[in-house]
Nucleic acid binder design. Structure first.
Length: 350
DNA sequence: AAGACGGGGCA
DNA sequence: TGCCCAGTCTT
């Protein structure tokens, strides 16, 4: 399988993204994009990458910034450990320079087999395949391998297959072609085999069962906790954010949350007690938020408080709504719910 | 090898 | 809802 048909297909169907500049690419751009692309949809990265680059135009800017600033620039992307590792990585690279070999890149914090290969390929022209979910799935189907998507075996087979293909074409563009093929044609469900340039060579297609490969991964049990969120607003229009001290969302700043269990009223009192507050919070509404295998229901309450209540390191700090702090999408969801409730109220009673 | 870790999109 | 996504790190 030489991959020429694939490159032909790619020349007609290439998707455009901010990080897809001509080869060889700026290593910094590749690095940031690839780290963001870890388990994050390309469309989402396309939205948020420009914001990050505007805040940190150069690698040196990341290295010189505080960790929290880098995490803040990742807000909305999830997997915030990536931002912390990227910060460490930037400092190492500024100190010691860029390795170009995938094996050496692999040693750096935050770069696993995929990202190390991707940076080596797209920034430095190496032909080691960055095996992501797309490449693994395509390999499983081409060879009709009954292996689960994340198995080490499948990864090895995919590496061997696409390594050979890349040698014959000698361009890392082949890897992008495979990723686009996986995203748009060789999709996880309902693959469009009629449009696939590799269908003639695909054993899964010949079997008539493309969707049987790779094997589905066993599903995990799901938790469905209920959290309470308290939206506190002072007369200056600021809201109180607190750092979360335990995972999930550890280290991020959100409105005070109560993540225990039991009766809602009891838990609300407990939360108020922690903050040294009294008063009668008003129920604003509920929202749902998913974190990995958890499906979380968040009950949102609001309360207006006098100035300076709860102002200290442990209990949080008052910030304006648009403050640049490390936070999560959940904070935006809560803010949106409160804002919507507010506008409803002014419409209804206004 | 398995579990933890965000969040959005889609059928 | 259930599953997937340009994964990595820890145990």
């Amino acid at each position: 399988m030489d991959g020429r048909q694939l490159l032909d297909w790619y020349s007609q169907h290439r998707r455009s993204f901010p990080w897809r500049t001509p080869f060889p690419r700026d290593p910094y751009l590749v690095l940031v994009a690839e780290v963001m692309l870890q388990q994050t949809q390309a469309s989402r990265v396309a939205e948020l990458l420009p914001r990050f680059l505007a805040r940190f135009p150069r690698l040196e800017d990341v290295a010189a910034a505080g960790e929290d600033q880098v995490v803040a620039a990742f807000a909305g992307l999830g997997y915030y450990r990536r931002a912390r590792l990227l910060h460490r990585l930037a400092q190492q690279l500024v100190q010691r320079g860029w390795p170009q070999d995938p094996h050496q890149l692999r040693q750096l914090p935050g770069l696993g087999p995929y990202t190390a290969a991707a940076v080596a390929a797209f920034a430095f022209g190496h032909l080691t395949p960055p095996v992501d979910g797309n490449l693994a799935r395509i390999a499983a189907r081409l060879l009709a391998l009954p292996l689960s998507a994340h198995s080490a075996q499948l990864r090895r087979q995919a590496t061997a297959l696409f390594s050979q293909m890349a040698q014959s074409q000698s361009t890392p563009a082949l890897f992008e072609a495979l990723m686009d093929l996986g995203a748009t044609v060789c999709r996880p469900v309902s693959p469009l085999c009629g449009q696939c340039p590799l269908a003639a060579r695909c054993l899964a297609f010949q079997k008539g069962r493309p969707e049987d490969f790779p094997l589905p991964k066993p599903q995990r049990a799901r938790e469905t906790p209920t959290w309470l969120a308290l939206w506190l607003e002072n007369p200056a229009g600021e809201v109180l954010l607190r750092p979360i001290t335990e995972p999930p969302l550890q280290g991020l700043w959100l409105p005070p949350l109560e993540r225990g269990s039991g009766e809602v009223e009891t838990r609300l009192r407990r939360l108020l007690g922690e903050l040294g507050l009294g008063g009668e919070p008003k129920a604003v509404g509920r929202l749902s938020h998913r974190i990995t295998h958890r499906l979380i229901t968040v009950l949102v309450f609001r309360l207006s408080v006098p100035p300076q209540v709860g102002e200290n390191g442990r209990n949080g700090r008052w910030v304006s709504v648009e403050a640049n702090v490390p936070t999560s999408s959940l904070a935006y969801k809560i803010a949106r719910l409160v804002a919507e409730a507010e506008s409803q109220r002014s419409i209804t009673y206004g």
